[in-house]
Design a protein around this nucleic acid. Sequence first.
DNA 1: TTATTAATGCAACTAAGTTGCAATAGTCAA
DNA 2: TTGACTATTGCAACTTAGTTGCATTAATAA
Lengths: 124, 124
Amino acid sequence: MRLTQPRIAILKALIADHGPFSVDEVRSLSGAKDLDRVTVHRCLTAFEEIGLVRRCEFGDSTSRYEYAGDDHHHHHVICKQCRKMENVEECIPKALVNAVRSMGYENVSHSLEFFGVCKKCRAA
Amino acid sequence: MRLTQPRIAILKALIADHGPFSVDEVRSLSGAKDLDRVTVHRCLTAFEEIGLVRRCEFGDSTSRYEYAGDDHHHHHVICKQCRKMENVEECIPKALVNAVRSMGYENVSHSLEFFGVCKKCRAA
DNA sequence: TTATTAATGCAACTAAGTTGCAATAGTCAA
DNA sequence: TTGACTATTGCAACTTAGTTGCATTAATAA
């Protein structure tokens, strides 16, 4: 895998700002504003494949990406109103994954997202 | 809310076959093959709003829907290879939801999906 | 320094879902 | 039962996110 200008810019942005970002958000954060959307896509996909980046789905049919090179496993809460998101450090118990294994699955991973209304939005 | 032919057909299909279905799958399952895609969409959205149907996202940028009128809360495992899906009856511990509440969120819901490789696919 | 080829950028395309609007068909009241 | 009201449907056109093919560019290895 080659270390190119677009890839450096994208990775820098993801490491600096951490909070899953859409392709277009990554594009503007990366500074390289003239970066092609397709390139950002391909870079993120490539990073995902080697585990440098994690893809998140929040149910709005847009993929978001965050830096994952630090092995910091976590989940997210998304405010149903303002769409702000925060990390949730707690994770599911191992027993749950084992339950799925006992159903005959191997190589089990999971996706867990929380949705709620944040303090700010409730005040308004 | 009016009880129309399309809605009856769609609900029947969802109750009969349960396993989250995409809009097009619902369309063919409903028998009413000449049903407009848009209509199916709108019906499912309407059902979702009144809690009759639950929307699931498996990270392939397609929404899937399942009957939820029976209050049967559960999650899913999706095989990473053949895309087959099964219910997972276990759920996350209350402590986890409380952790999110203590971050300042109310009305907290969650989405949890498992991904793995099923027995059949491993054999092949 | 040059040759190789992975990666980029562009244009055209696909897939899922949304919107506006005229026509249709449930539902309510007479 | 009939008629009026209006929610719902179906169509066409549109949006948004993402993908594909291919010629050009720029990392890397010799």
